[in-house]
């Protein structure tokens, strides 16, 4: 029997390693955060979950309030939105801006809504410098120039965990309300994201 040549062996080894590696990713790589190859873990709110919830919320708000012509603001100007309390009722430490900022940016881009950064819950401004400038301007001009918010956004993020055998399930419920100056919730929405699995997996 004829023995294989060293070149043939090298080719075979190279081909075998190519087959074994397959579509495996290198140790570190960039992924599209809005794509379908981000990491999903059952017990945590992942980046795509925030985007998914924000997408549902903004879509509902545009359809139910803006498209329906129910957004009220003086003189056709963009409505002013203030951010109220977003309660984190999950077991995780999370930054609610992961959700709220996406919604703010999307609403701002519509040209219909703008968010105040000088008014916040308990007098806490998101931008203290802008708040100081506004207060000084009002003091020196001796008149109130600030337009009060037309709406405030409040909400809650809730977590619900279940387990059956070795299958774990986590549900994250995103709830938001848009309240008018008159104190009426003119829009409310809820989006639930449920994940199930035995361990963290890649993909959605």
């Amino acid at each position: 029997m004829k023995s294989p040549k060293p070149v043939q062996i090298l080719w075979s080894l190279g081909f075998a390693s190519f087959l074994i590696s397959g579509c495996a990713s290198p140790q570190a790589t960039y992924v599209d955060p809005s794509g379908s190859r981000t990491i999903t873990s059952v017990g945590n709110i992942n980046i795509q979950d925030y985007a998914n919830a924000a997408d549902a919320m903004v879509g509902s708000l545009i359809e139910g309030v803006i498209n329906a012509g129910k957004l009220e603001s003086p003189g056709g100007q963009p409505a002013i939105l203030a951010i109220s309390r977003i309660v984190n009722n999950t077991s995780q430490h999370l930054d609610t801006d992961m959700l709220v900022k996406k919604i703010r940016v999307a609403l701002n881009k519509t040209g219909k809504v703008q968010t105040t950064t000088t008014m916040g819950l308990g007098g806490q401004a998101e931008d203290p410098l802008a708040q100081g400038i506004r207060q000084q301007t009002e003091f020196f001009q001796d008149k109130k120039s600030t337009r009060l918010p037309d709406y405030s956004l409040s909400g809650k993020i809730i977590e619900q965990r279940e387990q059956a055998g070795n299958v774990r399930q986590s549900s994250f419920i995103f709830q938001l309300s848009l309240t008018s100056k008159g104190g009426v919730a003119v829009w409310e929405e809820e989006k639930t994201i449920t994940k199930q699995g035995k361990r963290s997996t890649v993909g959605f």
Binding site: S34, G59, A106
Partner: peptide, 25 residues
């Protein structure tokens, strides 16, 4: 739009579902 993202769904055998979206601008 910062909210444009891939959304995961499941569809059962023989099932008909609807997916929808509203333009961000």
């Amino acid at each position: 739009s910062p909210i444009t993202t891939a959304i995961s769904r499941q569809i059962e055998g023989g099932e008909s579902i609807f997916i929808s979206a509203v333009a961000p601008l």
